[in-house]
Amino acid sequence: MFKKLVNYCKCCYDELAHKTTWPKYAELNHSAVIVLSASLVIAAVVFAMDSLFKWVMGIVYPG
């Protein structure tokens, strides 16, 4: 059991250290900007929809 766990950890380390290609700083920064921009756009759309529905419900159910 312990030998399987040690072998698994060695394989995981080998995979991460030698076979995985990590992004460069510029690629990582570009991806972060895209994710942040998309999140802000989606938040703005949800806010607009919420405001519209609140306005409509205020007309339908006044008071």
Rank of each mutant, 00 (worst) to 15 (best):
F2C: 03
V6S: 04
N7T: 10
K10N: 07
K10L: 12
K10H: 11
C11N: 11
C12L: 15
Y13T: 06
Y13K: 01
Y13Q: 03
D14P: 07
L16H: 09
L16S: 01
L16N: 01
H18E: 00
K19F: 00
T21V: 08
K24C: 09
K24E: 07
K24F: 06
A26I: 01
E27V: 01
E27T: 04
N29W: 03
N29V: 13
S31Y: 05
V33E: 15
V33G: 09
V33Y: 03
V35W: 03
S37P: 02
A38L: 10
A38K: 06
S39T: 12
L40I: 13
V41W: 01
V41E: 09
V41H: 08
A43K: 08
A43W: 04
A44H: 05
A44V: 04
V45Q: 06
V46Y: 11
F47T: 14
F47Y: 12
A48L: 14
M49Y: 14
M49V: 15
D50Q: 08
D50W: 09
D50T: 07
L52R: 13
L52N: 13
F53Q: 00
F53E: 02
K54Q: 14
W55A: 07
V56A: 12
Y61T: 13
P62C: 03
G63F: 01
G63Y: 00
